[in-house]
Design a protein around this nucleic acid. Structure first.
Lengths: 326, 326
DNA sequence: CTGTTAGCGCCTTCAA
DNA sequence: TTGAAGGCGCTAACAG
């Protein structure tokens, strides 16, 4: 790779002048600037990031730690990267994956620190990772994207409570009066939204318990739950749950001849990529992922400029996506 | 962040000795080593990556360019990262996303080069990106993970042709005699596998054309295709296609009363995360993603050690995953 | 076994 | 508007 020195030799200028010309900072005559531009092109010069980082004591890089290889997060990453680029910063992604020794949280943290990022965004649904973020924010600007607001830190959260409340409201307005809720992994805040809504509308509370983590097992449970619904003396006419569970419910309903949405409406949660592919295509609550990413990045850069100052929480509203299961 | 110098002051040793102790290279007495270890812990010292990279003229980092935010690739990334860690290298991921100005291939390439990676892995299904890899490999060690073998470069490819051939063979052995194939985006090599197989078994060739890219549109087309099958005078008794298309087919079959797998068996392709969630759970051809990642990384590190030498192609076999649609 | 010296490529300060 | 000098943190070569 060509260096500043080589450029200086080629142009007959000093390294410093070349450097200023390239960065467009300080005084450089138009003639000199052009000379440098041509030389840059000729030598295919790219500044050495390591040298820049060392000299500037700043990597101009933000780190993003993602707590799972969940496809939902990829959109957030795109949005973050884009925002960071606007501030001449790059993004570096770290995926936590406890199944691999070198991708565990414990190993990742030092790795992140060694790259001395200018800031950090944590995308997570795990309390452990959130606690870790609370530690890390003492060392560098840090934003947490989480399920619930984290008061002690800058955070962006998706209002899952409100999302489910809105979904139940929608179902109620469409005339549904026996609305069920299937618990799944990490569904506490959603359940609260459900409970508040049925209470507000004077509807019965019908909660099917569950706490599985594995999508396929959830699907199978959903299948059984679906069959179960039909056998109930007074079956629900609507249900809200996760997309995974919903995929099973739809299959279960089909197996026993329950028609969706005529007999029972279903609203999922997350808008996973398969939601539109189910039979019927699933209405669901969507996380506005790129909005979340953008907001988190904006908050981070704000904090990088003003490291002190009260932590801020940004609430993001979910969107009800209507397909054919309602 | 603590520096080597501070460690030297704290321990009363020279910077160099501390450095050697930390890296475990060269002669250091056990006593000194312990002294340093304690100091490292005390100051929470982490070597500055930028300084290391600058000094060593090597980032000890490999770059991975992924041509889409496809969840299938995430497993490959985990495997690559793990392998690289074994060689004390980190992994840096770049996602191509032409919808975002700063994630287009054109913008990404210089960004990659500026970080001066020790090697590059390209994960792609696009000819344009492959061509780009052919250029880049002149500048640094490079491995391409692609749909088809790339003779001019080191590459790892998943044998889609053979995968589909095997799937058809399986269907044939289970007594299916009218096996159809639904084309989708980028399905040329799969189609060849289908054609060869039906030819070898003396079966009729039933190909439903199509070239859509959007999953939801594919699903809808699949739905219509499914209904169409039932209306045919002599309908197929099996079909091989993509998971997306299959999701629609299953819905279409259900709509017209065709039973899967009794009336018609379905084998998908890719084993996307929703495959197990369809009704019935979809049998499909799975990419052994982590094997692909591991092989690509191994090939890259081999090439990094021996930059010259003939390009190598590694073929990875697909696995037929049987669920309830066959 | 340990210390000294000399940069890696770049940017910041200061002087011209 | 340009140039010279110094040093970011680390490591490799060499000298003790």
């Amino acid at each position: 790779m060509a260096t500043l020195k080589e450029l200086a030799e080629l142009t007959g200028l000093s390294m410093n002048t070349v450097s200023r010309a390239i960065r467009g900072r300080g005084y450089v005559s138009e003639k000199t600037a052009k000379l440098v531009r041509d030389a840059v092109r000729k030598l295919d010069y790219h500044p050495n990031k390591a040298a820049q980082a060392l000299r500037r004591c700043s990597s101009r890089e933000i780190a993003v730690i993602v707590d799972s290889y969940d496809a939902l997060h990829l959109e957030k990453l795109a949005a973050i990267k884009e925002y960071a680029a606007g501030f001449s910063h790059t993004m570096r992604v770290y995926f936590i994956n406890e199944e691999y020794p070198n991708s565990s949280l414990k190993v990742l943290i030092p790795e992140v620190m060694e790259n001395s990022p200018a800031g950090l965004i944590l995308i997570t649904s795990s309390d452990e990772v959130v606690r870790c973020g609370l530690e890390l924010r003492k060392k560098l600007p840090c934003v947490i994207i989480a399920f619930d607001p984290v008061k002690e830190a800058d955070c962006v959260y998706i209002d899952r409570y409100q999302g489910v409340y809105d979904a139940i409201t929608y179902l109620y307005k469409r005339g549904r009066r026996r609305i069920a809720f299937c618990e799944t992994y990490h569904s506490e805040n959603r359940k609260r939204g459900y409970q508040q809504a049925v209470k507000d509308f004077g509807l019965p509370e019908i909660i099917i318990p569950g706490n599985l983590k594995n999508p396929v097992l959830i699907r199978n449970t959903g299948y059984l739950n679906g069959k179960l619904f039909a056998a109930m003396p007074n079956p629900p006419d609507a249900v809200q749950t996760s997309d995974y569970m919903a995929s099973g419910l739809l299959a279960g309903f089909a197996a026993v001849g329950l028609k969706t949405p005529q007999d029972i409406a279903v609203i999922g949660f997350d808008n996973r990529d398969f939601a539109a592919l189910l039979n019927p295509p699933l209405s669901t609550l969507a996380q506005p992922n790129s909005e979340v990413g953008k907001n988190a990045a904006a908050l981070l850069f704000k904090r990088m400029e003003h490291p002190t100052g009260e932590p801020e929480s940004i609430r993001i509203q979910m969107a009800l996506l209507l397909r054919q299961s309602t």
